Simulated scan of single mutants.
Amino acid sequence: MNMKRVIIIGTMIVTMSFAGTAWGQSAISPIPTAKWSIVDLDTREGSSDELLSALNQPSEEHLYQELYNGKSLRTITEENNGDLDKVIAIQVKQLREQLDKRLASGSIRSEQHAAQHAELEALVTQSANTAYNLT
């Protein structure tokens, strides 16, 4: 697989995983705003805690720092006695939900949905096993 594609997909998965947790508290706004992101910012409260729990991480900031320091999700999970299979399952579930929403909204065609859906688990697994050195 092309390294550039792996980095892009890995970055996308991490971003999608944390986007809902970073901006999870919605602000009250008198002016309605259009949703422009492919990431649904109104995620459920438990989704971030579920991922942090599977990784055995105390906070999102700590996890972000570990990833920034070049650790893979596998390494983080092993160092903290987490459950990598659960981490992968959570991310696959979240990304499948986003794909389903994109299909329902018409932003992707059913062929694209099927193709992305078919390779989702392999991409998430590969991303979880890959360390990205960002420093």
Rank of each mutant, 00 (worst) to 15 (best):
T33C: 01
G82A: 10
T33V: 06
A114Y: 08
V87N: 01
I28C: 04
V14I: 09
E60S: 13
A115K: 13
M1L: 04
V14K: 00
L103C: 13
I9M: 02
M1D: 10
Y132M: 14
Q98N: 12
S37Q: 03
L123N: 04
A22H: 07
L123S: 02
I88Y: 03
Y64C: 07
V87L: 02
S53C: 10
M1Y: 08
Q126F: 01
N81T: 14
Q57N: 00
S107N: 11
I28F: 08
I8D: 15
N56M: 08
D42H: 09
L103R: 12
L73S: 10
D100L: 07
A34H: 13
V39S: 09
K35S: 08
N56E: 10
P30E: 14
H113Q: 09
K4L: 11
I8H: 14
L95N: 11
V87E: 00
L63F: 05
V92M: 12
I90Y: 07
F18R: 11
D49V: 05
K101S: 09
A104E: 14
T77I: 04
G70N: 05
S127P: 10
L120Q: 04
T75H: 06
E78M: 05
S53F: 02
D42Q: 06
I88R: 00
L84N: 05
A131D: 04
E119Y: 03
V39W: 09
N69A: 12
K93H: 05
I88G: 00
L67A: 04
I28A: 06
K86G: 01
R5V: 09
V39H: 11
M3P: 15
G24N: 05
K35C: 04
I31K: 15
A122T: 14
E121K: 11
T77R: 09
A131L: 09
R102C: 04
Q25L: 05
D100M: 08
V87D: 00
I28V: 10
N133V: 10
S48E: 15
H62R: 11
A22V: 07
K4W: 10
Q91V: 07
L55F: 02
A128K: 03
L55Q: 01
E111C: 01
G20N: 06
E60N: 08
S127T: 15
R102W: 01
D85W: 04
S105N: 15
E119L: 11
